[in-house]
Structure formats: C-alpha cells, structure tokens
Design a protein around this nucleic acid. Structure first.
Lengths: 128, 128
DNA sequence: CTCCAACCTGGAGCGCGCTCCAGGTCAAGC
DNA sequence: GCTTGACCTGGAGCGCGCTCCAGGTTGGAG
C-alpha cells in the first residue's frame, strides 16, 4: 500500500529518476523517507504530490511557484487561504493560456484550409 | 504601405529587436532588405511571416520545425504538399496539447474546489 | 559469500530560445 | 557639420528544467 522504490515511483509518476532526485534537491519534495542504507522510499503521499506537480507543470507553472506552494503546505493549515489564492491565480493564467492556444489553433486551421483550397494556385498573402 | 524600420517591425510583430535579428541569423527570416547603409527594412511580407511564426511559436512548434517550413516555402510551389503535411501534423499535436491542458485544468479546478469546501477541515488525501 | 542491478552523491553539462554586450555605424533634426 | 538615438555585428551569457556523469554503496537473488 505504501513504500515504493525509486524506479517504481518514477514509473507511477511519469517523472524520471533524475527528476525525482532533482525535485527533492530543490525542496519541492521534502523529507522523502530512506532505508537504513540511505535509499529512497516513496510513500503514497509523495506520489500524491507528484501527481499534483505534474498537473501544475503541465499547465505551465514555474518550479519556483510550485516550491512556494509546497512550502506553504508544509507550513501548516493557516496557509490554506494563501494556497487557495495561489491556485486560483494560476487557474486564471491557464484560462488565458487556453484562450491563446485556441486562437492560434484557429489561425493554424485557417492556414491549413488555404493549402486545401489549392491547387488552382489562388492569390492571397505570401508567407505561405 | 511597406518598409518598416526594425523598431516598427518589433512593435507590430510583438517580437523584440533581438529576436528579429536572431530569427534572421538562424535563417527563419531570410533576405530581409537593407538600406544602402545596411539597416534592415521589413516588408509587409516579412510581417506576414512574423505573424505566422508567432502562431506556430505560441502553439509550441520548435524553431527547427519552423525553419524547415520556411525553407520549404522558399523552395517553391512543389513543396506545398509537404508544407501542408507539416502543418497538419503540428495541428494534431496542438489538439493533443489542448486536451492535456484541459484535463489538467480540470484537475486544478477540482483541487481549488477542495479548498473552497474548507473550512471544516475535511479529510481526504494529503498533498494539500 | 558473491554478484550485479539498482541506488547514492555532488557537480558539470545540455538544449532551447532568446537576451545582452562592446564597440562601432547610420541618418534625421537642428 | 554635429549631435544623438536608432541601428549594426559577432559572440558571450542567461534562465529554465532537467539530464548525465564518475565514482562509490546497497541489498536481494543464487
């Protein structure tokens, strides 16, 4: 139920071993358990954090901000407001990102349609 | 109607002067006109390319691929099929990107809802 | 007990896409 | 003609997020 070897944690989270170590080194993932010999043992809790980090990373949050969030969470319950705000702020940025992406996707589709209206070698702007 | 100073081209395209020079240096933007003294003069056509580059860049196309596209366009009309294919391939990637972004945005929203169901300090997974 | 794959550490290196710099040139306004 | 700000070049540097490496340790299978 809990206690995963590094390779297993990597497999489950989709992050590389190096990335897991890196995330611990920079303080994103804190207090990862160790065996007597010093090898890491990831818990379900760690895996939960990794899922969250993947979500935030995939939506473009910079690592510094993830670090801040993780630190707030470690600081205790009196930081929930700030964490909430941080996520809301990020969500707004993601919405903006989605709008931009949709807009540029539409442009791209239009460009593609231009090629599909060929041949006939129609007129129109350059930048083909 | 055509013939823009670098600063004007930068303003209109939203790229920095350095980026415009960089794009020319790496062969994205080719054959930019010059004054007798060697200063760049951007045409409407160049601006058109810049708009396209912004579209492709905003949708995550690597510069190497944009370069390839630009080169194909310079190579003439017999490359339209290949250009079309390149854009279609990219559009498919953008669609995938949008799906992922939407999915992770939904996760994020759920996480935010968790904070909004507080206080009461509900149970639930860690990774708060 | 031996083997070997998986793991450890600190630190260097990389790929991308710019961004900045020094030292010099150009050109529009006075 | 002089000033001044925009522009030129080649090349170094940067910020991000990993990724790789050397050299050593651990720990489960046989």
């Amino acid at each position: 139920m809990s206690g995963y070897a590094p390779s297993e944690a990597a497999r489950r989270s989709g992050f590389s071993l190096d990335t897991l170590r890196y995330y611990e080194k920079i303080g994103l993932l804190a207090d990862v358990e160790r065996t007597a010999g010093g090898q890491r043992v990831f818990t379900d809790d760690d895996l939960g954090w990794l899922v969250l980090f993947r979500c935030l990373r995939d939506t473009g949050m910079p690592i510094a901000q993830m670090r801040r969030y993780a630190q707030l969470a470690r600081d205790g319950e009196h930081t929930t407001d700030e964490r909430h705000e941080l996520l809301c702020h990020h969500a707004a940025q993601v919405e903006e990102q989605m709008r931009l992406l949709q807009r540029q996707y539409d442009h791209l589709r239009e460009k593609i349609r231009f090629y599909e209206r060929l041949p006939g070698t129609a007129p129109g702007s350059e930048a083909g």
